[in-house]
């Protein structure tokens, strides 16, 4: 089987990462031997403090490794000056940029920093790369806006545009979607995945939202118990590793959909009769009220909820006791059943 179907851009050998103080070193992860290829789209997941940021910073040459090596295009990262690394690895950190009077287009043009001369003047090519980056990230219309005045999602896209203008083969992003609302989260992740696919960039991003990582990432690197596990997101489901990792935690994972849920203590049982979308959502509502929901086809002697077109009926031993027009009403009256 041909594993290295694409070029290796970044590689770690027996890398150990962590923090060094004058007296002792505190390793977080050890003996990491991993490969990153062109076109890879890798989500790095793990709990807070599991070493995601440290790993990313070490890969980018921003932090010293405790041991082992990182190779950039086959060359030991340690021997490459930071001005040269900057032409191959772009980095977007979680640091919130706080600077006034910075136009978006000027922020993006800072991505050309490794290529410009001592004064930082932009050449025609430099400008073209900035234009491309603005175009790809869909920020063209906001170019003259001040960074300060952008929304969080736009700011993050601006930082990504800056990384694109840097024209690197690798982009490392630390928690790029941490502070965004759910639709922006998906928007950014989807944009990054397109970038890796269409432009053959190797993109590694850390994320603590496992459900988005499971859904969108090409590869999942999951840090658990000081180990980094490597695989396609689906592999993690099928080989049971994810369930294993999740065991002992409050959160459970649905084996067929990969959705996460928090199991509830059930206090009561309800039968439900019906079909369609309204039926599905009614089940969700009742489950949220800590009821165990049993589907049934038998309307006789029903104790539970009957879902109709546009209204709901609560039955007690076959007798209709309450009619509801919304799910909200249903949730208010369903306690009539619970008394039994």
């Amino acid at each position: 089987m041909e594993v290295n179907r694409t070029k290796i851009v970044l590689e770690t050998r027996n890398l150990s990462i962590g923090y060094k103080t004058r007296k002792l070193s505190l390793p977080i992860l050890q003996d990491l031997s991993l490969e990153l290829h062109a076109g890879d789209f890798i989500a790095l997941a793990g709990k807070n403090g599991s070493g995601k940021s440290t790993f990313i910073r070490t890969l980018g040459g921003l932090q010293e490794a405790l041991g082992g090596q990182v190779f950039l295009h086959g060359k030991d990262l340690h021997t490459i000056p930071s001005s040269e690394i900057a032409k191959e690895i772009a980095y977007v950190s979680t640091d919130w940029i706080q600077v006034n009077n910075l136009k978006l287009v000027d922020l993006v043009s800072l991505g050309r920093f490794p290529y410009t001369g001592i004064l930082g003047r932009l050449s025609k090519d430099d400008r073209r790369y900035c234009e491309e980056a603005l175009e790809i990230t869909g920020l063209n219309s906001l170019r003259t806006k001040l960074f300060d005045e952008l929304s969080d999602g736009e700011k993050q896209r601006g930082m990504i545009a800056r990384a694109l203008a840097q024209q690197t083969s690798i982009i490392l992003l630390d928690e790029p979607i941490a502070f965004l609302d759910i639709s922006h989260k998906f928007e950014i992740v989807r944009m990054l995945s397109e970038l890796s696919r269409l432009h053959d960039k190797c993109i590694l991003f850390s994320i603590h939202d496992l459900s988005i990582a499971m859904r969108e990432a090409g590869k999942l690197w999951l840090i658990h118990d000081q180990q980094l596990h490597d695989g396609a997101p689906e592999d993690f489901m099928l080989n049971g590793r994810l369930q294993e990792i999740m065991s002992g935690q409050a959160l459970n994972i649905q084996e067929d959909t990969g959705e996460f849920y928090l199991p509830r203590k059930r206090n009561g049982q309800v039968f439900i009769l019906g079909n369609g979308l309204a039926y599905q959502w009614t089940i969700k509502a009742l489950e949220r009220m800590n009821l165990e929901v049993e589907p049934t086809n038998n309307p006789e002697n029903l104790t539970g909820v009957k879902v109709n077109e546009g209204f709901w009926e609560i039955y007690q031993q076959g007798k209709m006791i309450q009619r509801c027009n919304t799910i909200l009403e249903l949730t208010l009256y369903v306690h009539l059943l619970k008394k039994e």
Partner: peptide, 11 residues
């Protein structure tokens, strides 16, 4: 302006 980490990553 972008903070130390970004400055370093820009070379």
């Amino acid at each position: 302006n972008l903070g130390e980490s970004h400055a370093k990553s820009l070379g």
